[in-house]
Amino acid sequence: MADLDLRHLRSFLAVARESNITRAAQQLHLAQQAVSAHIQQLERALGATLLVRTSRGVRLTAAGDELAAGGKALLGDLDALTARVSTVADGQAGRLRLVCKPHATHEFALEVAEALEAALPRLEVELVSVSTLPEELELLESGGADAAFLWVPTGDERLRYAEVRTDRRMVALPVTHPLAGRASVTLADLADEPVIIPKVVVSDEVLRHWLAEPRPDGRPARRGPATQRIEDRLLLVARGRGVWLAPEPLSRYFPMPRVCWLPVEDAAPSHLALAWTARAPEALMTRVAAEVRALTGWDSRPLSGVRDTP
């Protein structure tokens, strides 16, 4: 099989189309000598004469006619293939696997998937549900998911992320608690309350965030019992074993008759982010982040919120 150089084939097709080497060279923005050299190298590779010069320009031989017909189709298929590969590489085609915790994303996940599939008809969005941060991180690390929605900090410095929503911090209290009738509370009001600890945290930084540390007076939070499932944390709250600090969407997703939720005025908010690894198409991640921000009210903020952790 002849080893064809696509530059030589493109030069030949331009000459075949123009029936003139000079005009073909002008069209290709090449010197006439370069185009002539391309034709000669192509003829040597194929072992055939492709054109003959005439007083009016050039004329294709039978072999040249055959190459002109097949070469045009070949380059057309190659250009189409290149475009398809670029589309897939940019994440505009194929499957996008988004992993999320339903309690964090129930207000927008389906809308994001539908918006992306409407905008990019060759893209299929698969939503994968998990319950904990470690499950999300494991799917990202193993390649089982392309991106994840999670609150930052994540405890994994390898991840890139773009914040897509800000949630005020709420506290879950038993309805019998002396503070339960208040419209809101402060961290000072909760200073002596044991805080239930999520067992699923993956680093000290993440734990400090969920305990709202350091407190305004510099003291650490009083540690309460630790448990993994959100439902178990709320049962502990209902039984008076401690309070639990969580982003506001959880108060709407997990209502319980014997638990009340109050905003914590001076607690730092939680930031939900779209996180991904270096394997994910950067252009598509930017598109997903923009879609989510439009749905959550972040559309007025610049997408420069994309962070590349060191």
Rank of each mutant, 00 (worst) to 15 (best):
H209E: 08
A221P: 07
T186V: 12
H209P: 00
P134L: 07
V237K: 07
G144F: 03
G218T: 14
P225F: 01
A226K: 00
T154I: 03
E205F: 07
P134R: 07
L137G: 02
I230T: 08
L211R: 15
V130H: 02
T166L: 02
P121E: 11
I197P: 00
L236D: 02
A188C: 11
R229V: 00
A183P: 02
I196E: 01
S129D: 10
V206I: 10
A183N: 07
D189C: 13
P134K: 07
D217M: 13
G143Y: 06
L150R: 03
K199W: 03
D192Y: 09
S203E: 13
G143F: 03
P194E: 09
E138K: 12
A115C: 13
P153R: 10
R233P: 00
R160A: 14
V125F: 10
I197E: 08
P178R: 05
S131R: 07
V125T: 14
S203A: 14
V185K: 09
A221M: 10
I197Q: 08
G181Q: 06
R182T: 00
D217N: 15
G144N: 01
E117I: 05
A162G: 06
P214W: 06
L127S: 04
L207W: 04
H209G: 07
T166K: 03
R229P: 00
L211H: 14
V175H: 07
R229A: 12
